[in-house]
């Protein structure tokens, strides 16, 4: 294994994977630096899971290359299992296995495991150690699955739909666990379709849609670069021509609702709108200018998002 300190933790280049006649992943490339929390975001069926399954060696791509700390997961499966910890979607354990037995079993798999009591405590499993897997709630099963992924002190942790089935409190706990992982230098590859989760946890995000990477960047980059980076809303002192507003530079969408006009657009759109209003002598009452969310950036990138045709609104 050849490795230098500048090598990325995960490098995916031109990954392509088809199942029978269906293309799951068309052309996916990205690099994850060591110690990064890297989000893979996208709608259902976008190819997120196929991508991470190719990274951990469960699937072999039809084209492209994958390297994890220099190791090829498609040919050196054994080596990859020692540095990657994986929490899969919809993966269960033996129904009559207790939580403690599962944790002990996984501990025996690795050369340098962490004491399983650590993740068990962090994930609220301590009160359920003697409970059998089949009697756990969905959220408890999910938390055990996360604990098992971390026992081997992986250099790269792959977490697929991390917080599915968790209540809000458990979700916060899992999030703080992911932040701790990063603080200890673990690289995290996080598959999610939750915007909030990506914004809260990820250093960088790749948005995948229909088997292709649509954008890669920090959450704020993606929000700032999107056509819906800012949302400007106000109550005009007199009627405004919404069609004219819509044609302003950088404006993506104009809506009017109960006398309030909402303009979404790039970062400069707010200034353009206000300048226009001023030149017409219209006063924008109760003006608000806020950042767009990753949510709107995401929709912007994954859909051909056309707003309804704007109409004139009267004050």
């Amino acid at each position: 294994m050849i490795e230098n300190s500048h090598a990325p933790a995960v490098e995916v280049d031109g990954l392509r994977k088809t199942y029978a006649d269906k293309v799951a992943v068309e052309d996916v490339s990205f690099r994850v630096e060591p110690g990064e929390v890297f989000g893979i975001l996208g709608p259902n069926g976008a190819g997120k899971t196929t991508t991470v399954e190719s990274v951990c060696g469960l699937r072999v791509g039809d084209a492209g290359t994958v390297r994890v700390h220099g190791i090829d997961p498609w040919t050196d499966h054994e080596a990859i299992t020692r540095i990657v910890g994986v929490q899969l979607q919809e993966s269960r354990m033996q129904p009559k296995l207790t939580v403690r037995e599962a944790l002990e079993l996984w501990t025996a798999f690795y050369d340098d495991p962490m004491p399983w009591a650590d993740p068990a405590e962090r994930l609220g499993l301590v009160d359920h150690l003697d409970q059998r897997f089949g009697t756990l709630s969905g959220g408890q099963q999910q938390r055990l699955s996360i604990a098992l992924a971390l026992i081997g002190r992986p250099r790269v942790a792959i977490l697929d739909e991390l917080s599915t089935g968790l209540d809000p409190r458990a979700r916060r706990e899992v999030w703080s666990l992911v932040r701790d992982l990063r603080d200890r230098g673990t690289t995290v590859l996080l598959v999610t379709h939750g915007m909030e989760e990506a914004e809260a946890l990820c250093d960088r995000v790749a948005i995948i849609d229909r088997g292709r990477v649509r954008a890669v960047g920090t959450p704020s980059d993606l929000v700032g670069g999107a056509a819906a980076a800012t949302v400007t809303s106000f109550e005009p002192s007199e009627a405004v021509d919404l069609v004219a507003l819509r044609e302003l530079e950088g404006v993506a969408d104009v809506r009017a609702d109960a006398g309030r006009v909402t303009v979404t657009g790039a970062e400069d759109a707010a200034v353009a709108v206000l300048t226009r209003l001023a030149s017409r002598g219209v006063v924008p009452h109760r003006l608000r200018v806020v950042d767009g969310s990753l949510d709107s950036a995401y929709l912007d990138l994954t859909l051909d998002n056309q707003g309804a045709a704007p109409e004139e609104v009267t004050a």
Partner: peptide
Amino acid sequence: GYREAGILRRLRTTPV
């Protein structure tokens, strides 16, 4: 049952 529950699949991600 193990196969259907994804247990065998999950084991493939470990050194075992």
